[in-house]
C-alpha cells in the first residue's frame, strides 16, 4: 500500500497531505453547506443538527483530556480530571467567564505537575 514514505519526490508528502488531510476534511464542510442551505432557522431539524454537533464536540473534548497526545500524556489522568473539573466549576460559579475557567484549570495542571514530580523525587 502506498504511504507517506512511499516516494522520494519532494512533492509526494504534499499530495499525501492534500488527499488524506485536505480532501478528508473539506468534503464534510461542503456537505455541511449543502445540508445547511436546506435547514430553516428555528426548525426542529436545525436543533437536532446543532445537538449532534455539540455532542460530537463534547466527545472530542473528553478524548483530548482522557487520551491526549504530546506532552500532556505525561501528566497523570487524575491531575487532568481534577484540573478540568475544578476549572469548569469555577467558570460556572464566576458568571461563566471563560478566562476564569482556563486560568484555574491551567493553574491546577501546572501545580499538579509540580506536585507529582516532587512526589516522584521524594520516592
Amino acid at each position: 500500500m502506498i504511504s507517506y514514505q512511499s516516494f522520494e519526490a519532494w512533492w509526494w508528502p504534499y499530495v499525501f497531505i492534500a488527499i488524506a488531510g485536505w480532501l478528508a476534511t473539506d468534503i464534510w464542510r461542503w456537505l455541511g453547506v449543502l445540508v445547511g442551505n436546506r435547514l430553516k432557522q428555528d426548525s426542529a431539524a436545525l436543533t437536532w443538527v446543532r445537538s449532534v454537533a455539540t455532542a460530537l464536540l463534547a466527545a472530542v473534548i473528553a478524548k483530548l483530556i482522557l487520551y491526549p497526545v504530546g506532552e500532556l500524556r505525561n501528566v497523570p489522568v487524575e491531575v487532568r480530571l481534577v484540573a478540568v473539573s475544578v476549572g469548569f466549576a469555577a467558570f460556572l460559579i464566576f458568571g461563566k467567564r471563560i478566562w476564569v475557567g482556563i486560568a484555574v484549570a491551567l493553574g491546577l495542571l501546572v501545580a499538579g505537575q509540580f506536585l507529582t514530580s516532587a512526589l516522584i523525587a521524594a520516592g
Binding site: 464542510r29 453547506v33 445547511g36 460530537l56
Partner: peptide, 10 residues
C-alpha cells in the same frame, strides 16, 4: 463532525 457544525452555522 465538521458537517453538522457547518450545517448548523450556515
Amino acid at each position: 463532525r465538521l458537517m453538522p457544525m457547518v450545517a448548523a452555522l450556515i
